[in-house]
């Protein structure tokens, strides 16, 4: 059958690798290099080994949470509750260990599972009650943060244990352990998104939930899983956070959702769903982390850092829109 191919019309002029996704990544890398050049010229400390390893060891929290967020955004949803979930997992872990004498390893796992449970709740509300994901996770954002305060009675608990400290502060051959975990997770989910039917279904669902459903894809189950993954990863970030600070607090990870969404969107993932890559997200995370670090080194006040981040977000999305418009123009002109 395959032999009876009629000769295809002229091959498309556009080169294969020059897809929208690669363009996004490429422009991100360029912005990243520019950013580094700028900071390096402003402060000599920026490029020192010490500073680079600071960046490397503090990137995991945002990085890991961003993986889950990328998946959620690809399906056309959003998860605002990640910061609260990160706080909750730390609080749960420390309470179970300190007050109930549960072994720290088990307590940590339970803390992470608590995050998965919140994710399950998010997913269930979104799919069964059909409440918009923004509203749903905005509600759990508030509920879960409140819960963290209630459980901990607003207290900060010190928490130190050699093995536990290793999660956030240990190094393997000079490389931060948390960074290794983060990169491993990126690798795994990169493959999941790209090469498994689960991953491809997520893009389809984000592209058109109705068509996906009528194509026989178990949309509900996929969404549930995605929110659970997001919850689990956010909770895990919360554990890293506790390990790095050697304390758990209900106030932890405030504003994490904002940073994470910024990074993911910066990386080219569309809020409308159906589009996004983990490579983009990774670069987005690195850029954001570098920006924060550079601004601190330049002794810019933290208030201005917020301003800068907001601008970066607008710039990133605006840039994407312009590129998209341009692309469409090209297309309808037939270039």
């Amino acid at each position: 059958m395959l032999s009876a191919q009629s000769a295809p019309a002229a091959p498309p002029k556009r080169r294969k690798w020059l897809t929208d996704d690669t363009l996004t990544s490429l422009s991100l890398v360029v912005s990243f290099v520019l950013l580094c050049v700028f900071f390096a010229s402003q402060t000599p400390y920026f490029l020192t080994q010490a500073n680079l390893s600071t960046i490397a060891s503090t990137i995991a929290i945002v990085g890991i949470t961003s993986i889950g967020m990328t998946l959620v955004l690809i399906t056309g949803g959003v998860d605002i509750s990640v910061g609260s979930v990160a706080a909750l997992s730390g609080v749960v872990t420390s309470l179970l260990w300190l007050e109930h004498g549960i072994p720290l390893g088990v307590a940590t796992v339970l803390g992470i599972l608590a995050g998965g449970l919140v994710g399950l709740l998010n997913g269930a509300i979104v799919t069964y009650l059909k409440i918009n994901p923004l509203i749903t996770t905005l509600a759990t954002f508030s509920i879960v943060r409140g819960l963290a305060f209630v459980l901990s009675e607003g207290q900060t608990n010190l928490l130190s244990n050699e093995a536990f400290n290793f999660i956030g502060r240990g190094t393997v051959a000079g490389i931060p352990f948390s960074l290794i975990v983060m990169l491993t997770l990126y690798l795994i989910f990169f493959f999941v998104l790209r090469y498994t039917s689960f991953g491809r279904n997520l893009y389809a669902i984000g592209g058109s939930p109705q068509a996906s459903r009528l194509a026989g894809i178990a949309v509900t189950r996929h969404l549930l899983i995605v929110y659970v993954i997001s919850g689990l990863l956010a909770a895990f970030s919360g554990i890293i956070n506790v390990s790095q600070l050697a304390s758990s607090a209900p106030r932890a990870a405030v504003g994490l959702e904002f940073t994470v969404i910024t990074a993911v969107v910066l990386g080219g993932t569309s809020l409308a769903g159906g589009k996004g890559t983990l490579i983009g997200t990774l670069i987005g995370v690195i850029i954001l982390r570098t920006l924060d670090n550079g601004l601190v080194l330049m002794q810019v006040s933290s208030f201005y850092q917020d301003v800068a981040r907001g601008f970066v977000l607008i710039l990133a999305v605006g840039f994407d829109q312009i590129r998209l418009k341009f692309g469409q123009l090209q297309r309808s002109k037939g270039a």
């Binding site: 893009y203 389809a204 592209g207 058109s208 109705q210 068509a211 996906s212 009528l214 194509a215 159906g274 589009k275």
Partner: peptide, 8 residues
């Protein structure tokens, strides 16, 4: 609307 994922 019901069959195709237009962007893919």
């Amino acid at each position: 609307v019901q069959s195709l994922i237009m962007g893919q």
